[in-house]
Structures are given as C-alpha cells and as structure tokens.
Amino acid sequence: MPETVVAIRNLSKIYAQGEIQVTALNDVSLDIEMGEFLTLMGPSGSGKSTLLHIIAGIDRPTSGRCLVQNLDVTGLNESELADWRNQNVGFVFQTFNLIPVLTAFENVELPLLLTQLDRSERRRRVQTALDIVGLADRMHHLPKQLSGGQEQRVAIARALVTDPRLVVADEPTGNLDSHSAQEVLMVLQQLSREAGKTVIMVTHDPKAAAYGSRSIHLEKGELLKDEAVTAR
C-alpha cells in the first residue's frame, strides 16, 4: 500500500475582484502518493497554478484542507510555512528565476543558507544536486553563461538540494526548446523513479505529461480526468 504524501480535501479558492468572484478552484479532492510524478493539465486559467501553489504552501485556499504528510499546511502561520517550505518543498518555475549575480553553485546553495549545515556539508550537497542534473562541470558559471535548459536544470538542483519530499514545477518546460525540455523532463522523471521524490508538474503539453506517472485534468477549477499514464 503506497504512502499518501498529499491529501487534498474539498479545496476551493475564490478570488473576489470587486463585484465579480472568480472561482479558481472548486471543491477539489485528491490524493498524491509517494514517488508519483503527477502532471496537472488543463487550459490556461483552469486553476493549475493555484492548486500547485496551495500544495506548495505559498498560497492559501478559501476553504478545504491540504495535508502534506498528515500535516495541515493551511493551518501554519507565515514563518512556520516558510520553514516548512524550506525543508519539504523544492520549487521549479517556468522562468528559471536564478539570481543573476550568483554562480550556479551559489544559486543551488541558497536554500541551504537557512539550514544549520556547515560549509563542507553544504558543498557536498550542492555538488550532489548538480551531479544529479548533470551540471557539475558548470558550477562556477553565472546564469547568463548557461543555456535555458541548463538554467532550468540548475533551478531543479536548487529545488533538490534540501532533499525535500515534494518537488513542484510550474510549466518548467514552457520556455524551453524541445531538446532542452526533454532533458529537464528526464531529470524530473528520474527524481520520482530513482530518488522516490513526489513530483508535481503543471504543463499543458501532452508530450511533457507523457513523462509523468499520472495525469490530472482541470477545467474551470474542477477536476475532470484522473488517469494513470501508460505510455511511459
């Protein structure tokens, strides 16, 4: 019986914009298991990012609960959430969001500055993370000296370096050519398969979704389809 890492119960998110109310998520319930590579699909504006943000603890639902490893994330305060994110979640964004003045190594090291780890332990972890994404030889390069795909892989290394349970990625291949996208997707797939990470990825590209183990379709904030991906 596989372990449930994320349990979402009756989650709703409503944005009130003056008179108009926008329902971004409408009563979504979902379980995500350890080691799954879940892809969130659906048209633009269907609530994919909103769902991902709530799971990752950077946004709060209007109602409903989101338990990650039996901890109700929606009940944490700002600074508890910050600590929780640092320890449990790795983020990968569409735009790579590396700090331009820091080298690949330093960008990856950034989340570790919040931990108690000493210099050599930090170094070891950063190297491991860069090894996993295949960029150990680029660690002293600045983001502008890297290709888009390499930048995104550095971002993945940064997401991995704290050894989180959960890796969330919001359209990580949206800005990449197909070759670079493939590299990034392989790394994410490898994370779920070999390192046992739970990976949740938003995408609207069916080819990208094919790398996942399970695919969920959202439309107008509601869960439509939930299917295992067979063509792996």
Binding site: A56, I58, S79, D83, R85, N86, F91, I99, L110, P111
Partner: peptide, 16 residues
C-alpha cells in the same frame, strides 16, 4: 521583486 518572491518561496522569512 520577483527574486525576493523566489527567496520567500525557498523559505526565507519576511524578517530575513
């Protein structure tokens, strides 16, 4: 601004 948001996402707290 965006970078600060990213730092927040990575777990940096407001006071940091």
């Amino acid at each position: 601004f965006r970078e600060l948001a990213i730092l927040k996402a990575l777990g940096f707290r407001r006071r940091e």
